[in-house]
């Protein structure tokens, strides 16, 4: 036993932990291989999801490409959110609209939206929900495709939107009727639009995209 105490510390360390080190290296290699094999698929999934949502909003669009520089939008409290606007083109390559991802704070968690507009950035083509965690039965009604809430945004003008409790949901204008029982969620979506729409339009005009 007394020999061990005078043993080389590095040798002692290796004796004790060789198994850990070897398995760490092996497992690391395993993960690296798997990740290399699956990463393209994962990236493709994300693009597919965006395209499916944005394509559902802009029905003529066949593909989406990055357009211009990424735009950083001030989301209050000194924070900014970086938006990459994508250009939707039809089969012939003509511009049919714009789409981008943005987010705001909902009732329970962040709500991530895909917002699409027409080619002139004058009218909304609607929004889709990338991720949200709103109350089932109330706030999660914003995720219903072509539901009462989502359809109010189809064709609405790109200006400051306003949330009302009373009103006609059928009329398409800048007044959005709240989901009854889910005022916070309805407000969050409208606020997200108001935070992102006009600054992005301005920045796009500066970049010469519009």
């Amino acid at each position: 036993m007394s020999n061990n105490e005078t043993k080389n510390p590095i040798l002692f360390f290796m004796q004790e932990s060789w198994l850990l080190l070897v398995s760490a290296i092996l497992f690391g290699c395993l993960l690296a291989c798997l990740s290399a094999a699956w990463q393209p698929k994962i990236i493709q999934n994300e693009i597919d999801k965006f395209n499916a949502l944005a394509g559902g909003l802009l029905s003529e669009a066949k593909g989406f490409q990055n357009a211009g520089e990424s735009i950083s939008v001030d989301i209050g409290k000194g924070k900014t959110y970086s938006v990459r606007v994508k250009k939707g083109t039809d089969a012939a390559g003509n511009l049919v609209g714009w789409a981008f991802v943005c987010e705001g704070s909902g009732f329970a968690d962040k709500i991530k939206l895909v917002v699409a507009t027409d080619a002139a950035f004058e009218k909304l083509a609607g929004f889709g929900v990338l991720s949200s965690n709103e109350t089932p039965g109330f706030g999660d009604k914003i995720t219903i495709k072509d539901g009462f809430y989502q359809s109010q945004f189809k064709g609405a003008p790109v200006t400051e939107l306003e949330l009302t409790k009373v009103g006609d949901a059928e009329t398409i204008d800048s007044r959005i009727v709240a989901i009854s029982g889910a005022t916070v969620t309805s407000e969050a979506v409208v606020k997200t639009f108001n935070t992102f729409l006009l600054p992005i339009k301005e920045a796009m005009a500066e970049q010469g995209l519009l």
Binding site: L31, L34, W38, I42, N45
Partner: peptide, 13 residues
């Protein structure tokens, strides 16, 4: 767990 997570991300997004 990392393998499972990667698998789900790739094949059941």
């Amino acid at each position: 767990v990392t393998i499972a997570d990667l698998y789900l991300k790739a094949f059941m997004p």
